[in-house]
Each structure stands twice: as C-alpha cells, then as structure tokens.
Design a protein around this nucleic acid. Structure first.
Lengths: 159, 159
DNA sequence: CAAAACTATGTAGTTAACTACATATATACA
DNA sequence: TGTATATATGTAGTTAACTACATAGTTTTG
C-alpha cells in the first residue's frame, strides 16, 4: 500500500482519477478482445446518439457533460471513422445536426452484447457494501447543495 | 435493468473523471482563498516528502502511483518554486534524492490547518449512505482479485 | 571478470481534456 | 428596423497525465 492509498480523503481526487483511467484502459482491452474497433472515449457520444437520434454539437456536449470543443474533436474523429455524419440545420443555419451513419448503427448493434457483459462485470466490481455509482451520485448531490469552497469557508468561520 | 441504469454504470469512468476534476478545481480555489500559493496536483509529492523526508524519483513515483516521467515533471516545477531540492545519492550514483526545502516545510505547516478543513469538508461531501472512499477501495480490491477483462471473458463463456 | 540484464533517470512525443478567443447566425429591444 | 445581445460552432493554445525510447550506473551470471 502506498501513501496515496493511506492518506485517504485528501487524495480522493487522485484516487478517482486513477480508478477512472484504469477502467477506461480495461474497457479498451475488452472492445479489442471482442474484435470491436471502438475507443471508450467515444462511448458517451455514440450512446447519446443511439438514444436521441439527432442532436446539434452543443446539445451533445451538454448531454455528455463535456465542453463543446472537446465534443467537436470527438465528432471529428467519429466523422473520419464514418460512424456519424452531419448536416446543417435548415431552420437554424448556425447548427450542425449529427446522426449515426448506417455503419455507426451497425457498430452499436455489434457492441450491445458487449455493453451487456460490461454492465454485469462493472456491477460485480462496483456493487459492493458501498456502491460506487450511488456514492458518486450522493457526493455530486452534496456538491450541488453547497460547493467545496463554501463548505470550507463555513467550517473555518465556525471552527 | 433499464437503459438509464445501464448507461449509469457503463459511463462510470467518465463520471469518476468528472468528479475528480471538479474536486481538483475546487481544491485550487480553496488554497487560493486561504492565500496559499499551491496547486492541488503537487499534493501527492509534497505530502509524501512531508512523511518520508527523503526519497528518490522512482520511490516518489511509486508512492504516489504516477509514472516516473510525470513525477519528474512535477519535481521540476517544485524545484523551480524552491519547495524541494535534490542531490545525488553517494551510494548509488544513478539516484537523485529529493527533500523538502525550508520553504517547502514552511509551506507544509501553513497548509496543515487548510488540510484539516479540507478533510472535514470532504468527509461532509463523501461520507453519505454509500461512502465514496470506501466504495473506491472496495472496487479496487475487486479489480485486484480479478481484472475487468478477465471477468468479462468469464461472463461471456458462462452466459 | 566481462557481458548481459536490470534499475534509475531523463527526453520526446502523444493524448484527451480544458479555457480563451473568433466568427456567423439568430433574437430582442430601443 | 437596425443595433446590441445571445447562441452555435470552430480554432488555437494549454495542461497534466501517459508511453516509448535513450543513457548511465549497478548487479548478476556464465
């Protein structure tokens, strides 16, 4: 056990990041093992388009919680891979509407059984005494109620 | 299991990363609010040196769980800030031994009350029904027992 | 005891996110 | 109605981690 594991809560940001990175890398290995040419970072965009069919760039960015420039760079890759395509919105010429191509939809159906397996596997890993997904949701809710900085200021003035 | 739950766990890597990033940014604001010139990313190195006094580059990298090149680049910044200093190991000329400078030690004592406040605050945020730190530890333990890929392969062959 | 293997450090280049700024179009209001 | 404001997209540059490779020193072994 190293120091970061020992310090506990103060290093929680580092811990979250490390676990995220590990799951992302393992996810990439799983796609590769099942002979699917897909990068984990594409998942949020593709899944969103699978469910919502057609969205603008900013709508996707909001759905996946990324900045719009990050989203644009993902969309560029996916367009190069011919997994998505886009066209101007006739009603609003500023907007670019994104959809899955036939190839993209095919890819989604090929991935669905793998997603099921991943879901089962991730539940095995994270549905422990303290459920990781619930824990994230609860922490995010607390942060929404009152931010980290404001809480720290309050504790200082009280303590 | 419905679609929302499915995307929930499938997107867990993204969720972990986002929460990590938010806490890191908020942490930076807290240091700044308390007039401390310190970046959250330096924390693992500084805390490690505070506890272990003197370590080589690779020893620090192992303690904080980063690659050695990442560690080198953090050490470069900290050396520029005169928070740490380093000297060759006389016993093993390959090694560079790192210690906190007087300025570094002063900084640590200035930060300790802030770390206490952060600890309280982070516990408020994460010690919910499902404790986030425990949840991370439990998930990491499960991954150590058997990796994500191997679990996925097992489920495929069973299912 | 010299060659091979290993270990420690360092450099170069990549990646995947970000912020700040720029531009085009749409909407609101004086 | 035309100017100010807001929104959508895009570009440039930054950041903080990584991997792959290079080099120097140490240890092992045939």
């Amino acid at each position: 056990m190293n120091i970061i594991d020992e310090i506990g809560i103060l290093a929680i940001s580092t811990r979250l990041q490390r676990l995220s990175e590990q799951l992302r890398k393992d996810g990439a290995q799983i796609y590769s093992y099942f002979n699917i040419d897909f990068e984990p970072k594409w998942f949020p965009v593709i899944y969103t388009l699978h469910v919502k069919e057609m969205l603008s760039v900013v709508e996707i960015a909001n759905e996946i919680g990324y900045s719009h420039p990050s989203t644009i760079s993902l969309l560029k890759e996916l367009e190069k891979e011919k997994i998505i395509s886009s066209k101007k919105d006739k009603q609003d010429e500023r907007k670019r509407l994104i959809i899955l191509t036939a190839k993209g939809k095919e890819l989604v159906s090929k991935m669905q059984p793998v997603w099921s397996i991943m879901t089962i596997t991730l539940n095995e890993i994270t549905n422990t005494q303290n459920n990781l997904l619930r824990a994230i949701e609860e922490a995010e809710q607390n942060l929404t109620r009152q931010g980290f900085l404001q809480r720290a200021i309050d504790i200082k003035s009280k303590g």
